[in-house]
């Protein structure tokens, strides 16, 4: 799929503060008629970080690696839920590179279930898996 306009946030600069709006030339050419400004106009370090990060992502085929690793996690979670017989109320869905675990209200207050699972994961040294309710 080729979008008309696409917006990216700071991951493409490995976390440095920058965002990116890209698009087809026919649409993008309209932006030249607009005036815009912002408060980090002359900040060049993030631009350098973006160039370095994008080259690294292309050379190492990072998106394919993230999708492959993420698929192992997503499929692994769903297989585990099925094995434990709780796949009726929890599953992992979304993009392979960025999946989300969700809990159905049939099993209890979803925010409490999410909090409990996060609490127990943090005890085991795991922070930050994606959740939705």
């Amino acid at each position: 799929m080729t979008p008309d306009l696409a917006c990216y946030s700071k991951a493409f600069a490995n976390g440095m503060p920058i965002s990116l709006l890209t698009g087809r030339r026919a649409i993008w050419s309209y932006s030249r008629k607009r005036y815009s400004s912002y408060n980090v106009w002359g900040e060049a370090l993030s631009l350098a970080a973006a160039v370095a990060t994008i080259h690294e992502m292309m050379e190492r085929n990072v998106p394919a690696y993230l999708a492959a690793q993420g698929k192992k996690l997503k499929d692994g979670y769903n297989a585990l839920a099925k094995e434990l017989g709780i796949d009726g109320y929890t599953r992992c869905s979304g993009f392979d590179c960025r999946s989300l675990v969700s809990f159905d209200a049939s099993a209890g207050q979803p925010l409490e279930l999410k909090s409990y699972v996060q609490q127990e994961l943090i005890k085991r040294g795991i922070s930050g898996p994606g959740f939705t309710t």
Partner: peptide, 25 residues
């Protein structure tokens, strides 16, 4: 996911999920 996440990280995460989902159940 992050580029730094290895197979071992995925396996460890799944083993933690196994324990935690067992507790949840």
């Amino acid at each position: 996911m992050s580029f730094s996440h290895t197979d071992a990280d995925v396996e460890y995460t799944l083993s933690a999920y196994r324990e935690v989902l067992g507790l949840l159940k």
